[in-house]
Each structure stands twice: as structure tokens, then as C-alpha cells.
Design a binder for these strands. Structure first.
Length: 278
RNA sequence: GCACCGGUCGGAUAGCGGCUAUUCCAGGUGACUGUAAAUCACCCGCCUUCGGGCAUCGUUGGUUCGAGUCCAACCCGGUGCA
């Protein structure tokens, strides 16, 4: 089985630079696993790697869609699997890099998503209902799913109703055995160091012109509502707010990663011996 | 010194005689089926055999069947007048 390197971890741990270093060493190509770096024009706010930092290493799944449109995990999965195959065909090593745990799992665990695209009309209609009403609706459509769903989570309820409406029920969760051997490397920083790095990173973001980037997005037709969806950096950001939210986000990322016992963790503030896993 | 206002969880805040002291933030734990930097749940005084038990609204007294809430004195902070 072909090897695929996965580099994951909280935001601001230095994944991107580390990945380039490895790619150089093992003849690799990088596939981003970031739910927002797929959008064109979201550069500063998402901490997207700059062209020259790539040092000639091809990066896949960056800038693949206009931010006016919504990208979903199913599309990500498809494109990422395709990219892996292409890289392998070239006899190079795919290196998945990112902090979006959901996206990473979609590839490494082979999650099979129900083939039901978002239905904006339905979503709009039922989003007016409160949680109770949504639950009742789902119970009517699919009793089983209604039993194990988070009944307070409107987003999930709406999605479940969407699937059940299209398919008659929500298929139970299945995964497809992956065709590759994934080697998962986690980069972490002690919390005080992480906070310091986040602080620095956010300050730099503003210096580099985050407000200008937002202005540009607006000018190109991205609505205020859409900007809000694109993350806290893109909606009336202040340095303090972005720092605070980023710290909280980093904690949520860790909650996700902690479940995965296959991850080998390395302290990013110390030199890492690459031979350990290559 | 006098007068007024205030002192409630780490911070902010509600509570104006009645049962279980509210909400927000911060913090902790966790969930995750096409929005995932999203969305959501639980905990957040102490002890617990997870049934519950015991505390607690600046302090000390008092009134009352019952006090964070009313009264008195004191302590602390703010504002005004001297």
C-alpha cells in the first residue's frame, strides 16, 4: 500500500512550513486540508501559504473555488482523493496538511457521505422552525436517526431532514477502507507558546492588510452574510476578537484530534527528527 | 467629617420578603453523516457511594414563619459637598 503523510494540528503550529520541508526531502506534493483555504482571495485571514514559501512544491486544493460559492466536504473528499491518485501516479508522495479534522477524516477514514447535495430551498423553508419542530419532522421521516442525533443542533437536524427527504431515510454511517497507508503526524505546542504564536500571527494578519482583503472580497461581490460564514476573521474583525476566537478554535480542533489514536504527536517548538516516521 | 450610591462565582450582571440565586464572558469536558475557524451539549462554591449532602450574596447583629432582598452598626469602593 502506498504511503500518504498527513500533517495535522492546531492552527499556528507551523504545519505548512514543516510540510514543505518534508516534501523537499521525500519528493512529495502537498494537499491542503483546510476548509477555507480552498477559496480564492481568502489569503491573509486563513493564513494561506505564500507562493514563495512553497519553494517549488506543488500545493493542491488551494484556491479552487470562488468564495461566493459554497464548498462542501463531499467535494473536498472527491478532489482530494483524485489529487492523491495523481500524485501517486507521478511516483511522488502525497502529503496532506491542514487543521480541519473533519476533512482529514473524510479522506483517511473513508467516510461515505450520503449523495444528497444541499437543497437551499428546503433549508430556507425549514430553518424557520424551532428545534422541537425540526425534531418532530425528522422523527416522522426517520425515527432511527432522530434517536441518535443531537436534538439541539439545528444545523444537523436540517441536514438530516434534507437527506431523509431525498432518500426516504438517513443511511447509517459507513466508511470505505482506504487504499493508502496514512501516516499521521500531529504538531502541537504547549498552550502558553501556542497563545503567543496566535497573538503574533493575528497581529501580522492585520499588518499584512486583512481589512484590505475584506474590502476586496466585498468589492468582488461577496455579501456581508457570506463573509460572516467564512469565519470570524472576515466579519468586522478586531485584533483582540480574532485572537480570542482563534484560541477557542484551536481548543475545538484539539477536541477533534484527541479522538484519533493513530496520530503521532510532536512538539513543534523542538527540533523534530524526521527519520522517526519517514 | 457629612450626604448619596454601590459591595452577589475568576470578571461583568439580574434578583426589590417565599420554594432550585439569573444571564453573559472567561475556564473545563465532550459531540460531530455534504455549513466544520461552522454548529451543538454538559460542568463551572465544597463534598459525594451520583441518590444526594453542605455552604453561600462585604462583616456582625436584629426584624420575620421565612432575608441576597427590610432595619442597625461596622468595613471596603465610587461620587458629591465641606
Amino acid at each position: 500500500m502506498k504511503k500518504v503523510i498527513v500533517i495535522l494540528g492546531q492552527t499556528a503550529t507551523g504545519k505548512s512550513a514543516f510540510a514543505v520541508k518534508i516534501a523537499k526531502k521525500i519528493n512529495g506534493e502537498i494537499i491542503s486540508a483546510d476548509s477555507r483555504q480552498v477559496y480564492k482571495g481568502l489569503d491573509i485571514g486563513t493564513g494561506k501559504i505564500a507562493r514563495k514559501e512553497m519553494r517549488g512544491i506543488p500545493h493542491h486544493l488551494l484556491d479552487v473555488i470562488n468564495p461566493k460559492h459554497k464548498f462542501t466536504i463531499a467535494e473536498y473528499q472527491k478532489k482530494a482523493i483524485y489529487a492523491i491518485a495523481e500524485i501517486v501516479k507521478k511516483e511522488r508522495v502525497p502529503i496532506i496538511v491542514g487543521g480541519t479534522g473533519f476533512y482529514i477524516d473524510a479522506i483517511t477514514k473513508g467516510t461515505v457521505f450520503p449523495k444528497v447535495p444541499p437543497n437551499p430551498k428546503l433549508r430556507k423553508n425549514i430553518s424557520k422552525l424551532d428545534g422541537r419542530q425540526l425534531l418532530m419532522l425528522l422523527q416522522k421521516l426517520d425515527k432511527k436517526r432522530a434517536q441518535n442525533i443531537d436534538i439541539h443542533n439545528k444545523v444537523r437536524l436540517i441536514r438530516a431532514i434534507e437527506i431523509a427527504t431525498a432518500l426516504g431515510k438517513v443511511p447509517s454511517l459507513i466508511t470505505k477502507k482506504p487504499k493508502y497507508k496514512f501516516i499521521k503526524i500531529g504538531l502541537f505546542l504547549p498552550s502558553n507558546k501556542l497563545e503567543k504564536k496566535i497573538r503574533l500571527r493575528v497581529k501580522k494578519m492585520f499588518k499584512k492588510g486583512l481589512p484590505k482583503e475584506i474590502k476586496k472580497l466585498k468589492k468582488s461581490g461577496v455579501s456581508g452574510k457570506r463573509l460572516k460564514e467564512l469565519g470570524f476573521e472576515y466579519f468586522e474583525p478586531t485584533e483582540e476578537k480574532v485572537i480570542k476566537e482563534t484560541v477557542k478554535y484551536a481548543k475545538r480542533q484539539m477536541t477533534w484530534f484527541k479522538r484519533d489514536k493513530e496520530i503521532k504527536w510532536f512538539d513543534a517548538s523542538k527540533p523534530i527528527n524526521l527519520k522517526l516516521f519517514l
